[in-house]
Design a protein around this nucleic acid. Structure first.
Lengths: 232, 232
DNA sequence: CGCACTTGTTGCGTTTGCGCAAACAAGATT
DNA sequence: AATCTTGTTTGCGCAAACGCAACAAGTGCG
């Protein structure tokens, strides 16, 4: 197997401050994986054999309840760790991970986690921060679903996605992976119909531009107004 | 100042496996605090000077958005840590904490956190598990608010509260602190009116019994049916 | 190239739960 | 005991968003 180059991970937040030797040692224990678009990388409640670092692509983290309702918990972008069950004190994955596009990841066996964390306080701190952010983020979304109306939630999610993964084009900010009305509805707790209706409205006004699984935010500030509109 | 007795904390989950000396050392650094019912113990975004252990009482963790909408993020029960900003990699509190009844807590300066965590892997593991549970729990509630109807969410919350803090009485399981319709609505993302209407209905059927800020679950299994009813 | 499939749009009727308002009940205060 | 505050109940009308259904528009595949 080819040795992986430390430049792959050296500058990523979880690994800053780690010595070159340690990084190389870590990489020697990693395997690199490709995941085709649509593939499920791991499932909820499955034993967490590995944790992952996403090198390229986008991953959807999905929860499914007994009724079969799906909800997209979050998207993972390149450079982020995922499947880090140990960081939340679990031995099983808390959700399903699906490749939203063709993805490239590194994988490490979960058994090295404890050692890694105790040897590298910077890594530890970073991962706990990550978990903390995810908690805060989930909390915020809960608040939003509970208090804001659909229109605001959708505007907000579009802005967040644009922020997280947006790519500037000449028309505006393009959300850089295929995303359907259904996906948006699963992030905001509504139906694809309502999403479609609202976005059609915004498209008429020229605030967004969208095609099949493709959304460009043209006038972000208008959406911000919608997102933060005070209820009345 | 009186020395605190280690029996106060010795058997609580975060501290199991800690040596007697370490426990006593820890207690020597703690101050004990009383909080009257209704008092705000700390506020969101405030610098996290201390972290706390609730010895007795119940604490409401509350989020407030710019519109002034409140949401109860969770209740803390006796024996739980709270205000542990460091465990999620923050220097500020992520929410407001309000004493739901008269409370007794221990408080430690946040600056001892890092040391505590690195010295006591058991403590560390337990707290990360706690954070993980809170994340999972928040995730579940998000899913619920997004997919289940009000009726189901309220039934579910009542059951969870009964489970977490219920006290058996001759009438059924009493939720062991003052809780209003308003509180329930703030946990489930609805209005006190809707809560009142639904609970009145259940009271007529004899499934619950409730007075002012007081709820007793009489027929939990009926509520479970409501909570887990498949949508249609 | 055409067929099947997925994704998106739109109209319409229905329902859920909100919003407002008024009345009432139970403690707390003086 | 009288008053005040806070929490609860309930009626009524309304609006938001759902659910269904039919259709349109892209996309992929043989």
């Amino acid at each position: 197997m080819n040795r992986l180059d430390i430049s792959l991970i050296r500058d990523l937040p979880p690994f800053v401050g780690m010595e070159t030797d340690a990084l190389q040692g870590l990489l020697d224990q990693a395997s690199s994986l490709r995941h085709e678009k649509g593939v499920t990388i791991f499932r909820e409640a499955e034993e967490a054999k590995c944790f992952f670092l996403l090198l390229d692509g986008h991953i959807r983290v999905v929860k499914i309840n007994q009724n079969g309702d799906q909800m997209i918990a979050r998207y993972i972008s390149a450079g982020e760790l995922y499947g880090i069950a140990k960081a939340v004190g679990r031995d099983t994955y808390p959700a399903n991970a699906v490749a939203a596009v063709d993805c490239l990841s590194l994988a490490w066996p979960t058994r090295i986690w404890d050692d890694l964390v105790s040897r590298h306080p910077g890594f530890a701190k970073n991962t706990y921060q990550t978990v903390g952010k995810r908690l805060a983020d989930t909390q915020d979304r809960l608040m939003e679903v509970a208090t804001a109306k659909v229109e605001q939630r959708i505007a907000d999610i579009l802005l967040k996605l644009a922020n997280q993964t947006g790519r500037k084009t000449d028309e505006g900010i393009l959300i850089d992976f295929p995303i359907s009305r259904q996906d948006i509805s699963e992030m905001t707790g509504t139906t694809l119909h309502t999403v479609s209706r609202l976005m059609s409205g915004w498209e008429e006004k020229g605030w967004v531009k969208s095609g099949r699984q493709k959304i460009t935010i043209v006038e972000g500030h208008k959406l911000m107004l919608v997102a933060s509109a005070r209820d009345n």
